[in-house]
Simulated scan of single mutants.
Amino acid sequence: MLIVPEREIADLMTRAAAFDAIEKVFAAMASGDAYNFPVVREEIGHEDALYGFKGGFDRAGLTLGLKAGGYWPNNLEKRGLINHQSTVFLFDPDSGKVKAMVGGNLLTALRTAAASSVSIKHLARKDASVLGMVGAGHQATFQLRAALEQRNFEKVIGWNYHPEMLPNIEKVTQEAGVPFEAVDLPAMTEADVIISITSAFAPSLMADHVSPGTHVACMGTDTKGKQEVEAALLGRAAVFTDEVAQSVSIGEAQHAIAEGIIIETDVAQLGAVINGDHPGRISKDQITLFDGTGVGLQDLAVAAKVVDLAVEKGIALEVDF
């Protein structure tokens, strides 16, 4: 078995490699060459933690495995650790033997950012110039760096429930040489692309905060009850997702469906746009929304890539298991 520790990931995985892996796996999912297993995600009754498993099988890439982990909200304060903790396990699809164990914390951030970045590439207007960020936590910095590579953004505006955290994303914009402005949520109407990356259980971004022609990437809702945007917004938008089954059960679409605003067939796979089987955006005034629920195949795709890189560079640890 090969082991790629968390400490090695930063020097191995690039945003470009993550983007390529995620774009390919979304396409494979839409073509039926890859599928995800049902998600297990539970409150464990200890440390307010959410813990679970996401897995799947990509026939095209022969990638089989799962990610185990979750969200420990007290980690940063109590232990100086990030709140999201995870590990990816890969298996040989021919024999079932364990193939690799890979640190999943940074990979989770990179694959989540890559997913919204892929959605921007395929759904946002080409002339998008203002990027709006709703959320300014650890994940938001990854989202912002990846998004800035997809369009020639001239300005970034940001809002966070705790405004003292906004310097996290302002620092990224300074590094990129793009002006930043802290705003109230109604000012998000200025944005051409909006990324929402929070862990909220009540909507922050409302339908009237979004202008015609905007692309919205909702990246924080991955559990029953979570909600980042008003359900009415999905009724105004062309809705896309990584996987429809997750979108309607644990993603943003769960609320719009529960309120009778949309039905399951209104939600399309982003992979179908990548493959050319769906037109994607059809007008400059159309609102597009990507419901990024986070699927196991994303984790497996980036983990498999990082294992290949670790072997190539001779830094993968090998143990007899």
Results as ranks from 00 to 15, higher is better:
177 G>V: 14
168 N>P: 07
191 A>I: 08
166 L>T: 04
197 I>P: 02
200 A>V: 01
186 P>L: 09
173 T>W: 06
182 A>P: 03
175 E>Y: 08
168 N>G: 07
187 A>T: 13
199 S>N: 15
192 D>N: 14
166 L>P: 07
172 V>N: 07
168 N>M: 05
189 T>V: 06
176 A>F: 05
200 A>D: 13
180 F>T: 07
173 T>K: 13
200 A>E: 08
180 F>K: 08
198 T>C: 03
169 I>N: 13
184 D>S: 10
183 V>R: 11
180 F>P: 04
174 Q>G: 15
195 I>W: 00
178 V>E: 03
177 G>W: 11
191 A>S: 03
182 A>K: 11
175 E>Q: 14
186 P>V: 12
195 I>E: 06
183 V>Y: 06
168 N>V: 13
177 G>D: 11
183 V>C: 08
178 V>G: 05
179 P>T: 15
179 P>H: 13
201 F>V: 13
165 M>F: 06
183 V>A: 00
191 A>W: 12
184 D>Y: 00
188 M>S: 02
172 V>H: 05
171 K>P: 02
183 V>W: 04
168 N>W: 06
189 T>L: 03
196 S>F: 00
200 A>S: 15
175 E>F: 00
198 T>L: 09
166 L>Y: 04
169 I>E: 09
166 L>S: 08
194 I>H: 06
179 P>G: 10
200 A>L: 09
199 S>T: 15
195 I>D: 06
198 T>E: 11
185 L>W: 01
177 G>Q: 14
168 N>T: 09
178 V>D: 03
201 F>I: 12
177 G>I: 12
167 P>Y: 07
182 A>Y: 00
201 F>K: 15
181 E>C: 03
186 P>S: 10
169 I>T: 13
195 I>F: 00
197 I>L: 10
199 S>L: 14
197 I>F: 02
193 V>I: 01
194 I>P: 00
174 Q>P: 05
167 P>H: 05
166 L>H: 10
175 E>N: 07
196 S>W: 02
190 E>Q: 09
172 V>I: 04
191 A>F: 06
181 E>Y: 02
194 I>Q: 10
201 F>L: 06
183 V>H: 05
171 K>Q: 14
194 I>A: 02
186 P>R: 12
165 M>P: 00
197 I>R: 14
200 A>P: 00
187 A>C: 04
198 T>H: 14
171 K>S: 09
187 A>K: 14
184 D>N: 12
170 E>G: 05
178 V>C: 03
166 L>M: 12
194 I>C: 04
198 T>A: 13
